[in-house]
Design a binder for these strands. Sequence first.
DNA 1: TTAATATATCGAAGATTATCAATATATAAA
DNA 2: TTTATATATTGATAATCTTCGATATATTAA
Lengths: 116, 116
Amino acid sequence: MDLNLPLAEVSVTSDCCSLATEVLSTHDALRYAEIFKLLGDAGRLRILSLIAREGCAPITTTDLVSELDLSQPTISHHLKKLTEAGLLTRQQSGRKAYYTIVPNLFAQLRTVLELG
Amino acid sequence: MDLNLPLAEVSVTSDCCSLATEVLSTHDALRYAEIFKLLGDAGRLRILSLIAREGCAPITTTDLVSELDLSQPTISHHLKKLTEAGLLTRQQSGRKAYYTIVPNLFAQLRTVLELG
DNA sequence: TTAATATATCGAAGATTATCAATATATAAA
DNA sequence: TTTATATATTGATAATCTTCGATATATTAA
């Protein structure tokens, strides 16, 4: 038998008071992990940040290429993934592609992060 | 010359109104990407969720092993990474290791996600 | 029609990662 | 001291991902 009274021994100094009432289901965990994985890249974070700075004004692939130290194919690749995931929308106008932030999913992610 | 008036052509239907006033620096982007990368794994997300459910009560490695379909070494590995990143704290008591959520960093991540 | 521009896709190389079996370590129980 | 328990580390494999050069596509300009 374990007579360690371990919970008493462990000092609980954290101000943690979880807002998470439900444990993430396997399904939701997979879904959110896929999106967090996209955020787990500095280049993509900066792409999102640059687009967000424009507010409602869309930004083109070329704009991003000129602001980041990444090749045009790499940036196009990131934009595709972010768009497919629902973090961005893409609108073509002439030969330019305009991207904007989709706020919805970001709000969901913030809720998932209410763990502490 | 570009006479497309593209910004007028692109319909701005999004309710985007960015709260992000500053573009993420390269340094911060790297720093946050490293943490989002950790959240980009379903197993780790569920580990965090299970720990958060306990509120302030710490949880042991074995508790997690019994709730997840991952081997004990894999879970220990994830716990180490999450702890090193500052998302968890670890306290040893006897032969058990108790883990708890560190709320601070989660709050920072929520701020970073205020893009839309 | 020909040339230039904007963007996307292809294919490949190199790096990183998740995972587990086996093993090590450290503590507690018998 | 011997055995059982709790956790961590090692080493290896398979899968995934980032990145870029080269190329393709599509649109506009000359």
